[in-house]
């Protein structure tokens, strides 16, 4: 390891210990200014024989236990690399050097599954119910396309729990491994916006490698280190896809697309429908061309789009049956009945 990097890590290790609680938040801002600390930490994590690995993991956990979001996110940025190292060492059955990474991952997991009061977290989100008639699947019963109060009221909101009540875990077993890792990736994805570019690169690298190592496709890669195949779980692959998707649009166009392709390759071989489904959707909806000045550039742009395309609509009307024409007449009429604005709520 390079001397200067090591120096930065050692300094980082010692200074937090002496820090009084009142200075945490100012420390958080200085932490992000240390340019060579993060690459040095990556090098420590990547080297299972480094004697610094254990104190580094310990320190990262200490930061994660802190209540300051920025300190927690500092640790979280290394999650992809940690997961990669963990899974890789597990596949190679080299368990002993794995201990402190395992402990760190389990520590983060056990912190994240509970809320501040120590109750199990229940993560949920809201979607409009599809069981009610909507313009979408029963347009005739609704009549109008307009967003009327009535139309919106018919959209019952359903709160859906997508993750929650995970038990505390003391150790990793083959059985709970991906349950823990999926949840960790979920945490990463829920803060992915705050991650630095190096972390996006790490997540793409992790995904690519996990998906191809031990498969013939690895031969086409720059990275040829011999490695056993790593078992992957469908849900974990979905979480990786979510992170990759974000990376693609936020500066890692090339790496992200490569990772997406590798993940699809693996999902095809494993015959996992979930990652295939998401990966296909992501690939299909990618913009046609790479953004200019690729690296580090966000691809989040919209264009002024002509909102009316008369031809296709009239074509639809011409082609469609008489019932369709009827429906559009109904539609126009009921639109006209709405003369006053309605008090209503929207979903966004």
């Amino acid at each position: 390891m390079l001397g200067e990097g090591r120096g930065a890590v050692e300094e980082w290790l010692s200074e937090f210990k002496t820090l009084p609680e009142s200075e945490f938040s100012s420390y958080a801002s200085t932490l992000y200014q240390k340019k060579n600390l993060v690459p040095a930490l990556y090098r420590v994590i990547q080297d299972p024989n480094s004697e610094l690995l254990e104190p580094v993991c310990h320190q990262l956990f200490e930061l994660y236990r802190n209540s300051d979001d920025r300190l927690r996110r500092f640790t979280l940025q290394f999650l992809p690399e940690l997961v990669w190292m963990y899974l890789r060492l597990t596949a190679s059955r080299n368990r002993q050097s794995n201990g402190c990474i395992e402990a760190l991952l389990l520590g983060i997991y056990n912190l994240e599954i509970v809320d501040k009061e120590g109750n199990s977290k229940l993560l949920s989100f809201t979607i409009p119910s599809l069981s009610k008639p909507s313009v979408y699947h029963e347009p005739s019963s609704l009549g109008s396309m307009a967003l009327t109060e009535g139309a919106l009221c018919q959209h019952d909101l359903i709160r859906v729990v997508y993750s929650g009540l995970h038990p505390q875990r003391e150790t990793f077993t083959a059985q709970n491994r991906f349950e823990v890792l999926c949840f960790l990736m979920l945490c990463y994805n829920s803060a992915v916006v705050y991650m630095p570019p190096s972390s996006y690169q790490a997540v793409c690298r992790m995904s690519s490698r996990l998906c191809v190592c031990g498969f013939p496709r690895q031969q086409q890669k720059m990275w040829r280190e011999p490695c056993n195949r790593v078992v992957l779980d469908a849900e974990f692959m979905v979480q990786m896809l979510t992170a990759i998707y974000h990376a693609i649009y936020n500066g890692e166009w090339d790496l992200g697309r490569e990772a997406l392709d590798d993940l699809l390759y693996r999902a095809q071989l494993e015959l996992y429908s979930e990652p295939l489904l998401l990966g296909n959707a992501m690939k299909n909806s990618l913009p046609d061309s790479a953004p200019d000045g690729t690296r580090g550039k966000k691809v989040l742009q919209v264009e002024v789009t002509p909102t009316i395309s008369r031809i296709s609509r009239s074509a639809v009307t011409d082609l469609s049956s008489s019932s369709h024409t009827l429906r559009s007449q109904v539609h126009i009429q009921s639109c006209e009945e709405i003369s006053t604005p309605h008090e209503m709520f929207l979903f966004f």
Partner: peptide, 25 residues
Amino acid sequence: YSGEKYDANRDAVLSRIPEHNADRV
């Protein structure tokens, strides 16, 4: 629209789109 009850969810907005879109291709 001045309803008091905005329910925020990003996925919700998505689920509405196909409805719009589907009706007029």
